[in-house]
Amino acid sequence: MTKISTPSINIKHKGIFDLSAVLQGIKNWFEGDEFKVHYPAHKLKQPAGGWEHEMTIYGERKMNEYVKFTITLFIRLYDIKDIEVIKEGKKVQTNSGRITADISGEIELDFENRFDGSKFLQAFQDFYHKYIIKQDIGDYWEDEIMLKIVNLGKFIREMCQQEAVA
C-alpha cells in the first residue's frame, strides 16, 4: 500500500454562524460526494467563556479498485454561545464563536494490498507507479483530491457566511 499526502488548508472564522447547520452541512457534503463519514474523536467542554467542541471527521471514498481518497477534517469550535438574532423580521436561534478547521487529504494506492505478497510484486508495483500510472497519479488523482479539499473549505466558509468566497 502506498500513501500520498496532500497539502492541508486552514480556515478560521470568528462571528455568527449556525453550529448545527455547519456540522450537518459537512456531513451532507461528504455524503453528497459519496464519501463514507467517520467520527473517530469528539470532545466537548464547557468552560466559562462559552463551550468548546473538538472533533475529527474523516471521509473515505474508493475511487476505483486501486485508489482510495481519505479527507480528514479537524474542527475546533470555541467560545460558542447560543444567541438570538433577527433575520428578515423573525427571531432566529443561532450561535456566535470561533471556528478553526484544518482539512487534509490522502491518496491510498493499492488499498487492498494486492501487491504485498512478494518482493517481485512490490518491485512490479514500484514500476507500475513510476512508469505506467505516474501521470494519472500526479495529474489526475492528486488534482482531484485537492479540488475536493478546496471545495470542502469553500463549503465551510459559505456555511459561516464569510465574505471572501469565490
Binding site: 497539502p7 488548508i9 486552514n10 480556515i11 478560521k12 472564522h13 470568528k14 462571528g15 455568527i16 470561533r98 488534482d143 485537492m146 478546496v150 473549505g153 469553500k154 466558509r157 459561516c160 464569510q162 465574505e163 471572501a164 468566497v165 469565490a166
Partner: peptide, 29 residues
C-alpha cells in the same frame, strides 16, 4: 466589494490554468 475582489482573483487563477490553493483563510468580526 470583497466578494468581487475575491472572485476576480479566483477567476484569474482559473483562467491562467493555476490550481487554486487556499492555504489559510481567517475571517473575524
Amino acid at each position: 466589494s470583497v466578494k468581487e475582489l475575491y472572485q476576480l482573483i479566483a477567476d484569474w487563477v482559473n483562467s491562467k490554468g493555476y490550481f487554486p490553493i487556499e492555504k489559510f483563510i481567517e475571517e473575524s468580526v
